[in-house]
């Protein structure tokens, strides 16, 4: 949907590729900085290098997957309750 050349800078494929590169670079820097800045671990393990990164990424992946799984159980059509009331 970004075929238009005159479309906004943000949605052009080239700029999206650039943003991804920048994002990866920033991610790498935040982990690398831990060599110079000590993160005080309250419980030991949370002071390890890259713990924040791994913990953030891991818990988000877990939440997305749990949500996806629960979705199969809990998701209903958006007119579910309306259909129930119109049943009679």
């Amino acid at each position: 949907m970004n075929q238009n050349q005159d479309d906004h800078w943000l949605v052009r494929p080239a700029s999206i590729r650039l943003l991804w590169k920048l994002f990866w670079a920033v991610l790498a820097i935040t982990v690398a900085l831990q060599i110079f800045i000590e993160v005080k671990g309250y419980f030991g393990v949370d002071g390890w290098i890259g713990f924040g990164a791994a913990f953030g990424f891991g818990s988000c992946v877990a939440m997305v997957i749990v949500a996806k799984g629960l979705g199969y159980l809990l998701k209903r059509d958006q007119n579910y309750y309306r259909a129930e009331a119109d049943d009679d």
């Binding site: 993160v39 949370d46 890259g50 713990f51 924040g52 953030g56 818990s59 988000c60």
Partner: peptide, 21 residues
């Protein structure tokens, strides 16, 4: 400094998880 760095890692890698998934 350490705490800010910790939260930046935590949040930015959550962002990574969002876009990858």
């Amino acid at each position: 400094a350490g705490k800010v760095l910790f939260y930046l890692q935590l949040l930015l890698f959550s962002g990574l998880a969002f876009f990858l998934f």
